[in-house]
Design a protein around this nucleic acid. Structure first.
Lengths: 118, 118
DNA sequence: TTTATTGATATACTTTAGTATACTGATTGT
DNA sequence: ACAATCAGTATACTAAAGTATATCAATAAA
């Protein structure tokens, strides 16, 4: 995607980084979950309700993976009652430029693909 | 991923754009294929050889999808012999910032995740 | 006291993604 | 004439991702 040609090894190394990123953010629900939490939903049921068709199993599974990847935290508070809260980490903000870029590219791409054949 | 809260509708609309992008670039082989072509491999067998474990079926399938998405072109030239050439489109270059960002984020993320627990 | 809500887990299933292997017809090379 | 290469396709399979549904123990609300 840039002008100079790369060696095969450089190329494979780059691919591994890209695959690592894809692994963290792809799948049907990871980004919807991140966006839901970002939008102010912090409890399991809240997040679940905010994402129309997600199942409890997937939500549970994906929250764990996001926690392992340090994009969210799960905290149990016991002030008068047990309450579990999910929050985005400061680190998760490093994804912002990528998400923004994906949003823009996707919008533009759809417009491009669906435009009347010239 | 930014400070102002969005309405649910705005949020869902953004998600659709992001999912559109993910659909185009995710899967095990799409980016390896793009990078291989970018690296100077233009013929079916060349691309196939340059990507260690890809099967002919997947290469064929993914090339078609990339063509539908206008990221590559497939041209049949008949100057003295039939020869099929795959090339990246000018449009495919719009993916460059995204790919670059994914590469950087992935590299940094791996370092972050594997670093000794402080 | 029963009912609902919270934060999940377990089991079984379906769907999608990817693999393995054999094959084709046209061309080029020996 | 025979083998090799090119650009794939067809069929059958396995693995991964996701869904459906039931269940649980601990609060909280009526």
């Amino acid at each position: 995607m840039n002008d100079k040609k790369l060696s095969d090894e450089e190329c494979l190394r780059d691919m591994r980084h890209i695959q690592d990123t894809l692994y963290v953010i792809s799948g049907k629900w990871k980004l919807p979950i991140i966006m839901s939490i970002n939008n102010g939903n912090n409890r399991f049921r809240e997040i679940s309700r905010s994402i129309p068709k997600i199942t409890l199993r997937m939500l549970s599974k994906e929250l764990k993976e996001l926690e392992i990847n340090k994009l969210i935290t799960r905290t149990v508070s016991e002030d008068s009652s047990i309450l579990i809260t999910y929050k985005l980490t400061a680190y998760s903000q490093t994804l912002a430029p990528l998400i923004e870029e994906m949003k823009n590219w996707g919008r533009n791409h759809k417009a491009m693909i669906t435009e009347k054949k010239t």
